[in-house]
């Protein structure tokens, strides 16, 4: 399952960013597909991005919400959540893939504990304050502007590197975002999916659907003997398979001696 999942993650990362000429020219794609959102975190200012970021689009819609209720983007997010939930985190998010690759670097690792479980609530605060609150109150995409590492990595760095005009406009905010990106990427080497677990508001949003999403991990209650081998081996801060912290990656399957875990329609 792990090899298949990795393949899907790589295919998605390439598909979301397949406007390769954008990287060469330092320009972003302007086709009609940009009216559609990808389900994972992928900055629409990435030169390679062919579709929109759901978080960026939501914040932009909230900035304009005084004039127009954001039915379209809310509907898309709801659709992604109900159909896939955090399967998106486990399979369809390029930034999740980047963190998993960095975690493979051989270093001492910080194991999950009660503090990492408590820190997992921070992403809900970020969702409420930066994704919803700041756009509504200050008409600024708060998460995109002050936090989003995907925007910095995929959009900020390549565009600034290839555009002298943009280079001249960089200032404190740019270097703050670079600093934050470096901290997040470095922490991913030692802490499994640190951004996903503690900071990602998109993961926070999708976690609300863990009980109702159509696709995901299923536990056969008749086979399960509650040994908790699945939870013990999981690198996320789960209390049980399929809870709000579960990214539905399916890595727990191989550790279940009762064969009680399956991935599919719930």
């Amino acid at each position: 399952m792990e090899k298949r999942r990795k393949l899907i993650q790589v295919i998605c990362a390439v598909l979301y960013n397949c406007n390769f000429t954008g990287f060469a020219k330092g320009k972003i794609y302007q086709g009609d597909i940009k009216g559609v959102c990808v389900p994972g975190l992928n900055c629409y200012s990435c030169p390679g991005a062919i579709a929109s970021c759901p978080l960026g689009s939501l914040q932009s819609a909230l900035v304009s919400s005084k004039y127009k209720f954001p039915y379209y983007i809310l509907g898309l997010l709801l659709l992604f959540g109900v159909v896939l939930g955090r399967v998106i985190c486990g399979f369809l998010c390029p930034f999740g893939l980047i963190q998993e690759i960095l975690y493979k670097i051989p270093t001492p690792k910080l194991k999950k504990n009660r503090w990492t479980r408590r820190l997992s609530y921070v992403k809900y605060v970020i969702l409420v304050v930066f994704v919803v609150g700041i756009p509504l109150v200050w008409a600024v995409p708060g998460f995109c502007k002050y936090i989003c590492p995907a925007g910095t990595l995929e959009g900020g760095i390549p565009l600034v590197a290839m555009n002298e005009g943009l280079k001249a406009m960089t200032g404190g905010l740019y270097w703050w975002k670079i600093f934050l990106l470096v901290v997040i990427l470095l922490s991913s080497v030692f802490i499994f999916r640190s951004f996903c677990r503690f900071l990602c508001p998109l993961g926070a949003f999708y976690s609300f659907f863990h009980g109702v999403s159509i696709l995901g991990m299923k536990v056969d209650a008749e086979k399960c003997n509650h040994c908790n081998a699945c939870v013990a081996h999981c690198k996320m801060d789960v209390k049980k398979v399929g809870d709000r912290e579960c990214i539905q990656c399916g890595e727990c399957k191989e550790h279940c001696r009762q064969c009680a875990l399956t991935f599919g329609k719930k």
Binding site: C43, Y44, S45, C144, G151, G155, G156, G171, Y174, W176
Partner: peptide
């Protein structure tokens, strides 16, 4: 280009 997203502001 989303200037906020790329850190230009």
């Amino acid at each position: 280009i989303c200037y906020e997203c790329i850190g230009i502001g």
